[in-house]
Design a binder for these strands. Structure first.
Lengths: 146, 146
DNA sequence: TTTAATTATATCGTGTGCGATATAAAAATA
DNA sequence: TATTTTTATATCGCACACGATATAATTAAA
């Protein structure tokens, strides 16, 4: 006999985990055209909003450890998307800023959010539901980060 | 100027991705005591419910590819948690079933869900909210898997 | 009944994600 | 000022995830 609380269908953790991977899969065809991965896309979103940021600030915004972000940024530098240079005011910090190629990519990415939204051909889930879901997840993240 | 739809805070994708990793982090101290990882825990949940399953059925239940599940199961076999044997009726299939050690672990895992639930010391999020969130995520998963 | 197509699993390569640890620079303290 | 502590980034090792591909067994079709 399986304890009720140990059934897969009764876990809150699994739907979050599965939904995360499924959403990333939805993004892939669009990101493939830009030649970047999903975490790289998140870094681009941050850098399109901020002219210049140290590694740690990017990691905090994405709730990632720096030992994940450092190699991620290095791969993006290899792709020619961004530059890394020491902060002259604090030599510990490495400042990240987009290259021209990185800035130009924003134009190509502008249509992605709408494309993703349109790709949900699901009568039982509309944009309002998505917004409410987003709000609830942000609550959960607040609980889990403090 | 950043297009509104490209701001990190306006993405539905990011909260799901971040919440998934944060939840997994919450599980880690408990799973560490059992000597398993989070994806391995999910496999255990499936096998505590099903005496015997082919690799593909486990992959489908967890919405994972078999090229993720095969090495995962091999590591779990090395840990002595499960056995792998060919299906005599269909030699393509590999049937997975728990060892005694794997079955015994269920007892130790029984308290985990309650511990996780208790660990949310967040006044703005109760169990009812979590249940509603789970239902909405399951809707999203339905949309994204069909 | 050969041959072709499908199915189930496995292998390989690349990119995360993170715990543990290292290193250098800055800040705090004795 | 010398020493200790903290902060910012990087390195290493391991376990996922998954696209692409390979292989063997089964099924479908010619």
């Amino acid at each position: 006999m399986v304890a009720e609380q140990l059934k897969l269908e009764n876990q809150i953790c699994f739907p979050v985990y599965a939904a995360s991977r499924l959403i990333i899969r939805k993004y892939q065809p669009y990101l493939e055209k830009l030649g970047i991965t999903y975490p790289q896309y998140l870094v681009m979103l941050v850098l399109w909003e901020h002219e210049q940021l140290p590694v740690n600030d990017i990691a905090q915004k994405l709730i990632l450890n720096t030992n994940t972000v450092t190699p991620l940024l290095k791969r993006m530098q290899t792709l020619g998307l961004l530059k890394r240079e020491k902060d002259s005011l604090d030599e510990r910090k490495v400042l990240i800023r987009l290259t021209e190629k990185g800035k130009i990519m924003q134009k190509e990415a502008e249509s992605i959010p709408q494309n993703i939204a349109d790709s949900i051909h699901c009568t039982s889930m509309n944009l309002e539901d998505l917004f409410s879901l987003k709000k609830q997840l942000e609550q959960l993240i607040l609980c889990y980060t403090k």
